[in-house]
């Protein structure tokens, strides 16, 4: 299925005729300089592999402790879920829900849904529920904040260092890897899946 011949800039409503992009090329709006389209370096197969990698790293980032503090021989460590539960118990339920949503549920949903659409996109098909999944992904896009959390971990380490012995646990490295993967994903316009896939023939 060939993509539509026209393209409209999301930020200023200017209409363009679509041209095919070579490797590394980016189409920018001549009026407002917003990125219209990028060339896709990764195939659906590559994206599926990347999603699977992100999934593995995400599980590690969430099960391994992130930081351990030591004070007079006592030790205390935290995982992401430990953080969420601690905030809930300390009467900051709103924050607890925000943290759980932006760092756990939304990223998890995003990865599962990406996995689902890429799995079928390998053969140029749309899986069951493709439309709903793509709509959910569209609204989920700005609400995952794992990379901000990574920076938060670094700030917390520096703040705690003044009073405690701080050990960075494997969870930090998993978060670092996740941040790199998120950066790779940020360049992928998954909306192009609408153009490159077709409804399955019954």
């Amino acid at each position: 299925m060939s993509p539509a011949p026209l393209l409209i800039c999301e930020h200023c409503d200017t209409v363009y005729r679509r041209i095919s992009l070579a490797r590394g090329q980016v189409a920018c709006c001549a009026r407002c300089h917003f990125v219209l389209e990028r060339h896709h370096r990764l195939s659906a197969n590559g994206l599926l592999a990347l999603t699977a990698t992100a999934m593995v790293v995400f599980i590690q980032a969430n099960t391994w402790p992130i930081i351990t503090l030591g004070l007079n021989g006592q030790q205390s460590s935290a995982t992401l879920w430990g953080t969420i539960i601690a905030m809930w118990q300390q009467h900051a339920q709103i924050v607890s829900v925000l943290v759980a949503a932006t760092l756990f549920f939304f990223p998890l949903m995003k990865m599962l849904l990406f996995g689902w659409v890429f799995w079928f996109a390998r053969r140029g098909e749309r899986g069951p529920g493709f439309r709903g999944v793509m709509i959910v992904l569209h609204y989920l896009r700005p609400w995952t904040m794992s990379e901000v959390f990574m920076l938060g971990v670094l700030v917390a380490i520096v703040k705690a260092r003044a009073y405690f012995e701080v050990t960075a646990d494997p969870g930090v490295f998993a978060y670092a890897a996740l941040t790199v993967l998120i950066t790779v994903f940020a360049g992928v316009d998954f909306r192009q899946l609408w153009d490159v896939t077709a409804e399955r023939k019954p």
Binding site: S76, Q90, V99, K159
Partner: peptide, 19 residues
Amino acid sequence: YWSMLDVFVVALLTALVRF
């Protein structure tokens, strides 16, 4: 969304500093 930084720092320290 980078403004959430301070919220995450407080959440992490709450979970960590429990002596």
